[in-house]
């Protein structure tokens, strides 16, 4: 390898490291106990054993531990004084200290991941996949239909319509959140319904309109005419010719729009109840009421990133492949 190539590879490597550093920090943070969260960690900190002198109330507050679940697990009936330490608890209720430790220690040592899981991470993940999937799919389909109508701007009003879609981009979502809420709940009756968030995601569609309109304009009009000559109707053209060619623009659209939909915090927070929160709202809600459980928040962030990263990598491959296939059109 030549010297300038080495320098180039080195710089690229450095760039990769810089890009990946936040993800690394996030993973470390996801396993850093909240009590140490003001300290700087480069590596996962050691897990400290559970102290039997800790008070049950403090543990419940700081580690978001469900005191009622603890009582049921230990077979304690009635009120438990949260000021009691674990050692005193064991004495008062004649419990084996080891039993208390066995139940509480993992919840303290791996507090972040476990409390995220217990708060309903999987349900929230499924909700997010549903909302994002339907939004990307339906939004893409609508974009293809809009694009195939507008491509080429054959009439003056085509450009006007296109510009209206583009105008949609400059409206800040915060500003219209109240009228949108009123429309969703009072007019459409979509109170606490995933459909409301999906509708918000696919409405307007400036990005999809832009991507599909410009791509469809590059498809030769002879393909359409050929279908016409062969006796096909417009829907034949749409389903047999146009849709199969939409892989590239769809990958472009999905890889840009999907992270945005996946990470949307505002709309689920406004339109959905906590039991139906999608991931970002869910993560924001697990912080706790009186204290902030940073370990849980960071774990929630990390876990909610993994699926989108996987999806993104798959799409990235498709994206690169289709982009290359289009470049060497012969």
């Amino acid at each position: 390898m030549k010297r300038h190539q080495l320098v180039l590879v080195g710089l690229l490597g450095l760039y990769c490291l810089i890009t990946l550093a936040p993800f690394y920090a996030l993973v470390v943070r996801a396993f850093t106990p909240t009590v140490q969260s003001t300290e700087f960690h480069l590596w996962l900190p050691d897990r400290r054993p559970l102290s039997m002198n800790a008070r049950l109330g403090d543990l419940a507050t700081i580690y978001s531990i469900d005191a009622r679940a603890f009582r049921q697990e230990m077979g304690i009936k009635g009120y438990v004084n949260p000021q009691l330490t674990l050692a005193q608890l064991a004495e008062t209720y004649e419990l084996e200290p080891e039993r208390i430790r066995a139940w509480l220690e993992p919840r303290v040592q791996y507090n972040g991941v476990l409390s995220v899981m217990e708060a309903g991470f999987l349900r929230s993940l499924l909700a997010t996949i549903f909302v994002t999937g339907v939004s990307v799919g339906v939004g893409g389909l609508l974009g293809i239909m809009t694009g195939s109508a507008l491509a080429g701007f054959r009439r003056p009003w085509h450009l006007f319509t296109y510009n209206l879609y583009m105008l949609n981009m400059i409206i800040p979502p915060m500003m219209v959140i109240l009228p949108q809420y009123l429309i969703m709940t009072k007019v459409l009756g979509l109170d606490d319904n995933y459909l409301s968030v999906i509708l918000i995601h696919i409405k307007g569609g400036a990005l999809s309109t832009m991507v599909f309109t410009s791509y469809i304009a590059t498809i030769p009009k002879e393909l359409r005419e050929s279908v016409q000559m062969d006796g096909g109707r417009h829907y034949h053209y749409f389903f047999y010719v146009l849709l199969p060619l939409m892989g590239t623009p769809f990958a472009v659209f999905a890889s840009i729009a999907m992270p945005w939909m996946w990470n949307d915090l505002l709309h689920p927070l406004v339109f959905l109840s906590p039991a139906k929160y999608t991931l970002p709202a869910f993560v924001a809600a697990i912080g706790g009421t009186y204290t902030t459980n940073y370990e849980a928040i960071f774990s929630g962030l990390m876990l909610s990133l993994i699926p989108i990263l996987l999806i993104y990598l798959v799409f990235q491959k498709m994206f690169v492949r289709s982009a290359v296939a289009g470049a060497v059109k012969g």
């Binding site: 030769p220 002879e222 393909l223 005419e225 050929s226 016409q228 000559m229 062969d230 006796g231 047999y240 010719v241």
Partner: peptide, 16 residues
């Protein structure tokens, strides 16, 4: 077009 019994070959072939 199809009812006219015509078939067309385009300049850029227009293959799918």
């Amino acid at each position: 077009p199809v009812e006219r019994g015509c078939a067309m070959v385009f300049q850029n072939y227009a293959l799918y």
